[in-house]
Every structure is written in C-alpha cells, then in structure tokens.
Design a protein around this nucleic acid. Sequence first.
DNA 1: ATTGCAAGTCTTGCTACGCAAGGTTAGATT
DNA 2: AATCTAACCTTGCGTAGCAAGACTTGCAAT
Lengths: 110, 110
Amino acid sequence: MTEERIATNLRKGVLEYCVLALLSHGEKYGLELADDLTTRGLIASEGSLYPLLARMRENGLVEPRWDASGTGRPRRYYAITDDGTGQLTTFAQVWASLGAQVDALLEGSR
Amino acid sequence: MTEERIATNLRKGVLEYCVLALLSHGEKYGLELADDLTTRGLIASEGSLYPLLARMRENGLVEPRWDASGTGRPRRYYAITDDGTGQLTTFAQVWASLGAQVDALLEGSR
DNA sequence: ATTGCAAGTCTTGCTACGCAAGGTTAGATT
DNA sequence: AATCTAACCTTGCGTAGCAAGACTTGCAAT
C-alpha cells in the first residue's frame, strides 16, 4: 500500500532514537524491543532492528550484555550509555523543531 | 555537526509532502521552493529538491509549466495535481499517527 | 532418543532518499 | 563582446529500513 511506503520513509532516522527512548527506562533484549516497536508501528520487521542495534553498539550508544540465566535461549540485553542519553536529548530538540515546521505546513494547507 | 546528521535523516520522506503542502497554496517555481524550504530548515541544498521534483513529476503528483513571460531566464512552475492532493491527505494521517508515537516515547523518557 | 517447534539472534541483497559538488542555459548588464 | 547571475539539472555517494531467510538453542511430544 501507499501508506506503508510513506511510513517506511518516515521511520528513517527516527527509529534509532525510539530505541534509545525505550532503553532509557531500563535494559531490554532484541525481540522485546522488536515486539514493542512493531506494536507502535515503528518498524515493519526485525530486519531493521538488528542491523541498527549493531550500529548503535559500534557507536557506543548502547552497551550489550548476554544473559543466559533465564529459561530458553540466551538473550542479549541492551542498556543505554551516557553518550546515548546525550544523543537522545539532542534528537528531542531537532525533532521538536522540524516537527513544528512540518505541522505548520500541513496546518496551512487545509 | 551531529545535529545536521540527525536532521538529514529526519527529512527523508518528509520533504516530498512539504513540497505538496507548499504547492497547495498555488504554483511555485524551483528556486522559490528551494529558498522557502531552506528557510524552514527542510532542505540543506538544491541537490535534494530537483531530483525530488523530477520524481514527483514522473509520479504525476505535480504538473510543471514553463513560463518565459517575465524578466530573466524562464522559470518552471509546478502545480499540485489531484493525485498530489490525495497523497498529501494520506501523508497527514500517517504523520500524525507516527508523530504521536514518537512524542509519546520522548515524553516518557524525561 | 529423535523429531519438531518456537524463541532468539543475525546476514544478505535491495531500493530509495537526501546531499555536496559541480555543470549548463538564458537573459541582463557593462 | 564579455561577464554576471538567476535558474535549471546531473553525478556519485553514504546510509537507512526492509523482506526473506539462515542459524542456534532449549523444550516438548512422541
């Protein structure tokens, strides 16, 4: 559908910070994030999440930790870093500013 | 800067509909759009606009018209089509929905 | 024991967008 | 004639999200 194409493009550059926002409440593992983000309509499949997490790991925004204590196969839990928290703050500002501009344009065209 | 990198990614998928919103008030030519979008922080250079206009033209969202009546070199004026208006409406819905999700996440992480 | 299932992680190949840099054309100015 | 400038467009690049699927591990049922 055309709506999905629109959403796909909108998600670009947003997803990374949604993950940071989710992690700001405490650590979560991959599928847990994937389910949450899917429910919110922020990803279409895990195919976006795992590569993203790898990038964020390399950039020092999140810190992973294997946990095999529970039942089932081992999970990789991610925690947000100080760097990640900083980026989240910066994003919130850029998002607010750019969002306001878009809202203004949409508002003006009805 | 890191802010510009964030903004660049956020612009993906938004720009197209900002152009449609601007055109919904009446036709405009390329540089006029570029100046307006630059002022609003929605593009970083014309390098995003002209390829975008070409795509939109091919997809029937806008209808161009050469105008050489004025002074200076001829301008290509773009008008929004019915298809374009429809897409703009669809975008407004997707934007509102996805934006609300992002706002909720950001709100919850302070 | 073996088979099958489900949860969990990750990879590959693809498409599309925005951008920087630069190139082109046509009228205006000197 | 030469230059300037507004306006148009192109090329090559980096990167993000996605669909599809592969691999691994524990658990349950037969």
